[in-house]
Write a protein that binds this DNA or RNA. Structure first.
Lengths: 411, 411
DNA sequence: GATTATTAATAAATATTTTTAATAAGTTTG
DNA sequence: CAAACTTATTAAAAATATTTATTAATAATC
């Protein structure tokens, strides 16, 4: 059987108006509804979209013809004729997510129903602000796509996470690959031939956890990305919050300490100088040099060559020094998160990024700091959870960002 | 001519479905569009709402019949037949706003086009958590309404600001008047016979400034309410942000200082303990007792009886002591606002509340603290302005909250 | 196990909306 | 100043959606 050419038209508004436009919008609404409710009947759609049953039925039948949704069978009834339920078709279309890290890339493929079908992790790569580095990146993406050639015509979007400042609307990147006039997203799109979307890494991870991770029904969520640096993704009423220029969530650089450590941003006293992966690593090294004992010091290795991964591994092995330093870090970070809780009154705060892989060793100190520093009434509203997706939040988020933009016809 | 009985039906969805429901929704959309664009043509509406011109024309003619909009005349054309422009009818309907303070009440009347037609300020009142105090409040509202008896049938909503915790959806108040089962908004509504909506005071003021104050086209705005306490209203994409239980924006109680001052909330080191009207007043008194000279000390009056209003008056008269203390307060508050700017990347921060009436004496120290404590890139995005409405932001906000809820049929 | 109540799907009739065409009311240009 | 060109409004025709009525399917009840 030859590859299906699904009816992509509904994901764009080009060249249509009037009834055609309305029908596309309605079909997208049906898909959006199916996206959150998983399956539904014709009557559900009629109620939800305020359209008549025959109209809903005709939309459904067209979407079935387009192979975007299909009949899932009958639903249990409470007395009366059983209704047909419909849901999305798994392989109707696909999306690619690219999580660009400093020394490697993670890349994955997501299907229409938000399953991560394939993921390739730790693909070697050097993130530099050079044309060569950009070419290496597009090569990696192209190579990944070529592994799914039979699906290629159904890959509708590519999402790319970059750290630093990114404008998701214009597609410009300000921290990397900004050596040309055109927006970066368009450059890459021309290279790989698929609509491409850029996003900040912490925001993307937040979106991943929100759509397909630890978040269930919460709509106002903070995602704290404790990695080498410290970032945050903000979800407000189920949508990513960007701020005026997409620079929101700069948690790492809020003025928080009276210390003398100069941050790489040039300011002094940034939160990140004491509560990030780098700060953790440096503190551990400092203490080992000062004579503290630890699994990390015993292996008569060079202190300078300890990596953040080693520290996290040591925490898993119940290393006392690491646990102690994490507790101190957690108390400070908890105080900062207490501020956020007072301001946002969120339903949920999710801890993600490399350092969060130390699990309860970081969560519990933060939790007790929250009890200490927030108003009881406000604090009781807020859950504190560890990321469910872990390292994969980035790829998942990138896929989902692309999926969300394509499905809402926002391109 | 007898008082018009306008067609209020479009502001509710009760008992309608299908075409009737859609038409009401469309008419509300027309009004919402007119609300931001002031005036428009039939073709504008057709484009904006994606409906055909004849359909738009029929909606417009019905709205004109309902006396909600009217023909403003012809618009200038750029070659071709001139179009009729339509706009809202000033006196189609009215809204009342009640700003409840500790020792007095401000109350005002707003028309359909957001003009504050009448305001009564400083109506004596004692805010206590007693049935008597509640009765006094409803009496004040009733008396105010009775002054506009010929308009009464067109008063569609009453908004009430209360300090402390308020749930705007359920209508419950948790800090005042919570001695009955039923939500407070319903109790008051029964007393005065007009749909009633509750809101937190800082949020309401933020909304006032946003809809009818210093905010022009900005969509992400923070309103800092520096009054006796310290509050904040958050506007995200043009909407008030509430958080899970409506407790967002608790700026006054974020853990910020290592001081020993115990806040009335029970915690230590709250921002409010050093950067609120009360903190300002106490610091001034302290310094005068310590021998500092000031306009306030010269009037051989009792130091204990200096009021916040006196301090603000002194600042206006260029009193050195007050200006000095304000500068210190502004520096601390500016550091806190720097945190907010890093997190929200807002287009605008508005300073409101009593202390903001000191004008540049408080704005400039905050501005320079922002330069010191925020990243240049982020800071350049953000304007810092003084409230335009001042004391009236509360009444204006309360009216507009009621207006917004009624017009969006959210009741 | 037949009957009744309930809900879903379909068909026919009715109502509404959009499209297309025509007309009206201007502006610009030769 | 009239012809050509624009744009707005109205009218009639065509397309589309909603209503209402009917049929189909199933669970609960007697």
């Amino acid at each position: 059987m030859t590859a299906l050419q699904p009816n992509y038209l509904i994901f764009s508004n080009e060249g249509v108006s009037g009834v055609a436009w309305k029908n596309r919008a309605l079909k997208r609404s049906v898909i959006a509804y199916l996206d959150v409710s998983d399956s539904c009947t014709v009557m559900d759609i009629s109620r939800e979209l305020n359209i008549s049953v025959p109209k809903a039925a005709s939309l459904v039948s067209e979407l079935v013809q387009d192979n975007l949704i299909r009949d899932y069978g009958k639903i249990d009834s409470t007395g009366g004729r059983k209704a047909n339920v419909y849901g999305l078709v798994n392989d109707a279309c696909f999306f690619i997510g690219v999580d660009v890290k400093k020394y490697y890339v993670n890349i994955g493929l997501l299907d229409f129903k938000k399953h991560l079908l394939s993921i390739r992790e730790n693909v070697p790569f050097q993130l530099e602000n050079t044309p060569g580095s950009l070419r290496a990146l597009t090569d990696i993406i192209r190579r990944f796509i070529s592994d799914f050639s039979e699906l290629e015509s159904r890959i509708l979007g590519v999402g790319i996470n970059l750290s630093g400042r990114v404008n998701h609307v214009t597609g410009y990147s300000y921290s990397f690959f900004h050596f040309q006039e055109e927006p970066l997203s368009r450059i890459i799109q021309q290279e790989i031939g698929i609509p491409t979307f850029l996003e900040n890494d912490s925001r993307s991870m937040a979106y991943g956890e929100f759509m397909n991770g630890v978040v269930k029904n919460e709509r106002n969520v903070l995602f704290i990305n404790i990695d080498f640096g410290l970032g945050m993704g903000i979800l407000i009423d189920g949508n990513l919050y960007y701020g005026k220029s997409g620079f929101s969530g700069e948690l790492g650089h809020i003025p928080f300490f009276q210390n003398e450590k100069i941050c790489h941003c040039g300011k002094r006293g940034c939160l990140e100088t004491e509560t990030s992966g780098i700060a953790l690593l440096e503190e551990i090294k400092e203490r080992i040099r000062g004579g503290s004992s630890s699994i990390l010091s015993q292996k008569n290795r060079d202190v300078d060559r300890i990596r953040l991964e080693d520290v996290i591994e040591a925490a898993r092995k119940q290393d006392t020094l690491v646990i102690e330093v994490l507790a101190e870090l957690g108390d400070k970070l908890g105080k900062a998160i207490a501020i956020l809780i007072n301001i946002f009154n969120p339903e949920l705060v999710v801890l993600g990024g490399k350092v969060s892989e130390t699990g309860e060793h970081i969560r519990l100190p933060i939790r007790s700091a929250l009890n200490k520093y927030t108003l009881g009434l406000v604090n009781n509203d807020t859950q504190l959870k560890l990321s469910r997706l872990g390292e994969r939040a980035g790829v998942m988020g990138a896929c989902l960002i692309a999926r969300g933009k394509v499905l809402s016809a926002a391109h």
